[in-house]
Amino acid sequence: MSAWLDKLSETFIESGYYKLMLEGFRNTLIITAAAVVIGVALGVVIAMIKYLGEDVPWMKPFIFLCDLYVTVIRGVPVVVLLLVFYYIIMMSADGVTVAILAFGINSGAYMAELIRSGINAVDKGQMEAGRSLGLSRIQTARRIVLPQALRYVIPAIGNEFVALLKETSVAGYVAVKDLTRAGNLVRNNTYDAVNTLLLVAIVYLTLVVILTQLLKLLERRLAHGKQ
């Protein structure tokens, strides 16, 4: 036991590599949080365009673009997307920024489909009631339909959040020092594969568990308001 503690101390503390690990941890959090915000925002916008654009002739090109986006993103692995952003689209940008955008844009396509399924689950009478009061389609969609749709899909958005957190572990491909990359660098320099990878895995696991609990809490809160 004390031998193991010594080893831990040697790998992370004495070497000063704990700083690198902390930096990786921080970057993973930043990338995930920012990407989720971008993803949800994109998802809402796209879902709304597709919802409001139905049967509106001049919206057709926009809907086509949204469909194209969703199809392309869902058909390309996120690592490839990340590399395309890093080496082609934003050549001089810093890795974290590239990762935020790539993961955000990737997540947006999935969020869009999720939120659209939520919108479809809202009773059609809600739109009619809003319109009958004199609200416009956009006003009704934003204030009446969307809040209910989001409430339906919060569990699914939570799952997407968790998936995204773990997906960011490939950010190292574009030289971002995220948690995984940091652990791998430390492993490479200390030859201590067991403890570095174990630590990385435990941190992800802990984050996911905390996130899941928070989402459960949120869900319960919202369910309560519904009563």
């Binding site: 009478g125 009631a129 009958s132 609200l135």
Partner: peptide, 29 residues
């Protein structure tokens, strides 16, 4: 939309807004 403001409608299925309380249901429009 302007004309509909002058034509109230009541539905068979009520169509109240479930995420708003009664007061908000009435005042939002």
């Amino acid at each position: 939309n302007r004309h509909r403001q002058k034509m109230g409608m009541v539905f068979q299925q009520f169509n109240l807004f479930p995420h708003m309380n009664i007061l908000e249901n009435m005042t939002c429009a």
